[in-house]
Design a binder for these strands. Structure first.
Lengths: 210, 210
DNA sequence: TAGATTGTTAATCGATTAACAATC
DNA sequence: TAGATTGTTAATCGATTAACAATC
């Protein structure tokens, strides 16, 4: 599970680096280059490629960047726009809706939902009341939601989303939600990350024996 | 590194669960309870406690919650407010500054910085131009920054923060920054997490052999 | 050809878990 | 005491890395 996740994350990173290298005019790349770029051992790069069955490297000239990008696209899914909805349009939800950088990276926020919408749209993206969520999600075949509701509403909203047929949630609430068979959850706990940072830099972390 | 990170994350989670259990009136807790709560094996809970040298469980009655919280506090650092600054006051930066939930969890946003501030304060939190960053950070002994600048400014701002003596960065830009000896970086790449979710639910992830 | 890089097997490393004696 | 739970050692598991034959 965790491993698979790490593995996937690396594949996505390879793809991004490759697109950048391509835009710089490069045509071929070595496992060492990719390893350097994402901070891992080149052997692991080759192992990753081998694991995804694209044994297409040339034992002299490395990998063809275009072919590699194609392979990664076919494995990771298209590089076209992927629709998500934002649930909870408070400060954070609104910021994500207005955040233009997502679009550039292939993510399209198709609508926002709020139990009590203060505006009808933001940057041209419609904001609907929660009541129409189920309908909207079904009609537009939305599979992924970004959860930005207050902590108190997290668990209840998770269930709503599950009922509506959502399959993946990026969870920004401080309530840690657990993945199930049909609903995959990625928790982003900002406070926990900050607390973690404070601990790491406190020097106390080295006291914990390895 | 990764391991240590996971270990720390678990310690923080224990602490939070324990505080909640305490607020419910509980006084003692078993390793099984904590394991259930954060979704891990109870042996790992005991191992974690053992690793941090608080062998204080009672072989019949489990652990005393108060003692456990005290121990965790002394290891993780105080539970008092911890000051951070937000760098980059665009949509996301502003949202974090206005996000009141941080305060409840012991995190105090002490100021915001922007290369071109549009307002002097938000929710009573002052917004300063980048020029005064170094001075402010030194004077207020700020050690952790939350980075919300545009992708193009990420790397440059990282260097600025390092020069100013910042020791930890929570990085919300899509540019993956690397930790150094003196500057620890926690990357939160929203687009990557979403892309990961889409892959996980696509069913293709199971094609990748384990 | 000689040199370089891949793909893959075997070795290592570290984290998690099982098992169980200690003991409350 | 008998039963239950801890603390810790040994076993397992999986991910990463080293080594190296294959080959361009």
């Amino acid at each position: 599970m965790k491993a698979n996740n790490d593995h996937t994350t690396r594949l996505i990173k390879y793809k991004r680096i490759l697109i950048q290298l391509k835009s710089l005019g490069l045509e071929r790349v070595f496992s060492t280059n990719l390893g350097d770029a994402i901070g891992i051992n080149p052997t692991l790069v080759r192992k990753d490629f081998s694991r995804m069955n694209l044994t297409q490297g040339n034992r002299k000239g490395g990998y063809n960047i275009n072919e590699l990008i194609d392979s990664l696209n076919s494995i990771l899914g298209t590089s076209e726009l992927q629709d998500v909805v934002v649930i909870g349009c408070g400060n954070l939800g609104k910021a994500l809706i207005k955040h233009e950088a997502f679009y550039k990276e292939g993510i399209n926020i198709s609508a926002g939902f709020d139990s009590n919408p203060r505006e009808a749209e933001l940057n041209g993206i419609p904001i609907y009341p929660m009541e129409v969520l189920m309908n909207y999600v079904t009609q537009h075949e939305i599979r992924v939601a970004v959860l930005c509701v207050p902590a108190g509403a997290a668990s209840h909203t998770r269930d709503l989303l599950a009922d509506a047929g959502i399959q993946g949630i990026l969870n920004f609430t401080p309530v840690e939600l657990k993945s199930s068979e049909t609903l995959r959850i990625q928790n982003v706990n900002i406070c926990l990350e900050i607390e973690n940072l404070f601990f790491q830099i406190s020097g106390k972390s080295s006291r914990v024996p390895v």
